[in-house]
Nucleic acid binder design. Structure first.
Length: 411
DNA sequence: GCGATCAGCT
DNA sequence: CACAGCTGATCGC
């Protein structure tokens, strides 16, 4: 859970992912993704009043995050005060008074980069007089992904990053490796396929938590098995055809991700949380699959990404956050001057994490031009457009969607 | 009656 | 295998 207080040292007049307390005075707001622990204060009456009196204060986020936000009635009042950004946007003082530094306004260029955490999730790159600052929000990026992000480069070189505000959820050697998205997905596919192919009464219940981030599972399984996944509601995906085509409120499907407050009891009674049953009265054969984070040490042998936990229940590896080695790869590539953790892993202290992160920072004697690069990344210094394996739906869900979005405003 | 916070649960 | 968020109790305004 994020404990970031909302403000960055370099650009203290903007607030990111926090909207209470001192953040009530911000001149611009940013939301990296639509998870509640990054939305504290966002439905506050004080903030609402401030907006109604201001012509310039706005909330900036991706198109998908804006849609998810507005689909929740508690946040619908943001309709007139939100701006969904393309990949780059110049925040001009005349329009937004984004930054107020040393008695003068200045322009800050904000770039949205895909974060791979949930639909609409982005990282924000702020470029202005106080240096380049990368706020990661929450992210799941694989090894090498950062080296392929065009906007983190200038020509063939990585930009000089002053500070990174980091999703350090798994920044602990204990979480050294987490199987890749592709490996997890194929393990789940295999299990689902082997079950639902047995008969039309064999169904799978995906025991997903109440949060965005499982959608790529639905789209990939839907695609692979030419079906749709039963969910409680479709309204939040109204303007996201690439998700909408793989989910349904029709209970007559073999893959479910529906929920009920007492879904445990339903399962004990061999019923789905939606109450669905076969039309001819034949009892359903249900298995449950619970996506959970699984991790492995640096040298521990990886075991299966699927674990059987009962006669008809399984856990399947799934992570919204980058592993320790993925975070290390990310930081060693960027070599920022400073790193600020936004999460303290369970059982660690702020001092410990800060100390460990210092090892990932650029040495003060190093010039940005002669930054140390670990051997493992030398071979991918060539800048390429972002790609995320071969999984097309993943690309659509986890990139800032430029087609559906406002046209990008390049500066 | 509303919001903030916490325990408990998953 | 520890993320994200719900429900319900309690407290204060």
């Amino acid at each position: 859970m994020s404990s970031f207080a909302g403000r960055m040292k370099e650009y203290p007049t903007v607030s990111v992912d926090r909207f209470d307390r001192e953040n009530l005075h911000a001149r611009a707001y940013f939301l990296s993704h639509c998870h509640k622990d990054h939305m504290k204060g966002l439905k506050g009456p004080l903030l609402k009043r401030k907006l109604q009196f201001s012509r310039t204060v706005r909330l900036y986020c991706s198109f998908v995050t804006r849609e998810l936000l507005l689909s929740n009635s508690k946040y619908a009042f943001w309709e007139d005060y939100t701006v969904s950004l393309g990949r780059r946007r110049l925040l001009q003082p005349a329009a937004t008074v984004c930054c107020w530094l040393q008695s003068a306004t200045e322009d800050v260029v904000v770039t949205l980069l895909p974060a791979g955490h949930c639909p609409g999730s982005v990282m924000f790159l702020f470029e202005g007089s106080q240096g380049n600052v990368l706020y990661t929000g929450d992210f799941r990026l694989a090894h090498g992904d950062v080296s392929r992000m065009e906007h983190l480069h200038s020509g063939s070189r990585v930009k000089d990053i002053q500070s990174v505000y980091l999703d350090s959820t798994f920044y602990d050697p204990r979480f050294y490796q987490i199987p890749t998205r592709e490996v997890c997905l194929s393990g789940i596919s295999e299990l689902v396929g082997s079950w639902i192919s047995q008969s039309r009464h064999h169904v799978v219940w995906l025991n997903c938590k109440a949060a965005y981030g499982y959608e790529y599972l639905f789209t990939n399984l839907g695609e692979e098995f030419s079906t749709q996944i039963h969910v409680n509601s479709l309204t939040m995906f109204r303007k996201m055809p690439e998700i909408l085509s793989y989910v349904t409120t029709d209970r007559r499907t073999q893959i479910h991700a529906c929920r009920h407050p007492k879904d445990d009891e339903f399962l004990q009674g061999n019923r789905l949380p939606c109450g669905g049953s076969a039309p001819d009265g034949t009892p359903l054969r249900i298995i449950s699959i619970k996506p959970s984070t699984m991790w492995f040490g640096e040298r521990t042998r990886k075991t299966s990404v699927i674990i059987k936990t009962g006669s008809s229940s399984y856990r399947a590896c799934f992570s919204f956050h980058s592993s320790y080695s993925e975070i290390k790869d990310f930081l060693l590539y960027l070599q920022p001057v400073n790193i600020h953790p936004s999460v303290i892993p369970i059982g660690r202290s702020l001092a410990e994490v800060t100390q460990m992160l210092k090892l990932m920072c650029r040495k003060q004697s190093d010039q940005p031009a002669s930054v140390y690069r670990p051997l493992g990344v030398l071979k991918r210094s060539r800048v390429q457009p972002p790609t995320y394996g071969t999984s097309k739906p993943l690309d659509i869900l986890y990139n800032v969607n430029q087609e559906v979005n406002q046209p990008p405003l390049d500066c």
